[in-house]
C-alpha cells in the first residue's frame, strides 16, 4: 500500500460513526444485522450486557434512527422486538468497511 493510500485510510479514523463505535452498541448492531428482528431476551442472552445497560444503548440507537423498537404482548407476556432500520444497516455496513480499510492500513 502506498503512503498516500495509507494516509487516506488512516484519515478515516475521524469519520468513524461514533454511535456504532461504542463496543456495546457495535455488538447490538452486529447481532441485529443478520436478522429480520430479535426480542430483548435474545439480545440480553447473546450480548451478556445487563438489562439496564442494554436498555440504555437500545434507546440511544432508537433515538438516532438506527434501530426500531416495537413493544407488544405475546399471550400475557410483554415482548420487545428490535429491528435494525435501513439507516442502521447502511451505517453498520459503512462502519465495517471503514474499519477493514483502517485495519489494512495499519503497519
Amino acid at each position: 500500500m502506498s503512503d498516500a493510500a495509507r494516509n487516506g485510510a488512516l484519515g478515516q479514523i475521524g469519520t468513524l460513526d461514533r454511535l456504532i463505535h461504542e463496543p456495546a452498541r457495535l455488538l447490538i448492531c452486529a447481532l441485529l444485522y443478520p436478522l429480520e428482528e430479535a426480542d430483548f431476551l435474545y439480545l440480553l442472552t447473546q450480548s451478556e450486557l445487563s438489562k439496564g445497560n442494554l436498555s440504555s444503548h437500545l434507546a440511544k440507537l432508537e433515538e438516532s434512527g438506527y434501530v426500531s423498537i416495537e413493544k407488544r404482548f405475546k399471550g400475557k407476556l410483554p415482548q420487545t422486538l428490535c429491528r435494525l432500520t435501513d439507516r442502521g444497516r447502511e451505517a453498520f455496513e459503512s462502519y465495517r468497511k471503514s474499519l477493514k480499510a483502517l485495519a489494512k492500513a495499519l503497519p
Binding site: 429480520e36 415482548q79 422486538l81
Partner: peptide, 11 residues
C-alpha cells in the same frame, strides 16, 4: 429461555 429471533431471507 433464550429469546426470539427471525433470520433475514437472504442469509
Amino acid at each position: 429461555r433464550a429469546g426470539v429471533m427471525r433470520l433475514r431471507q437472504d442469509v
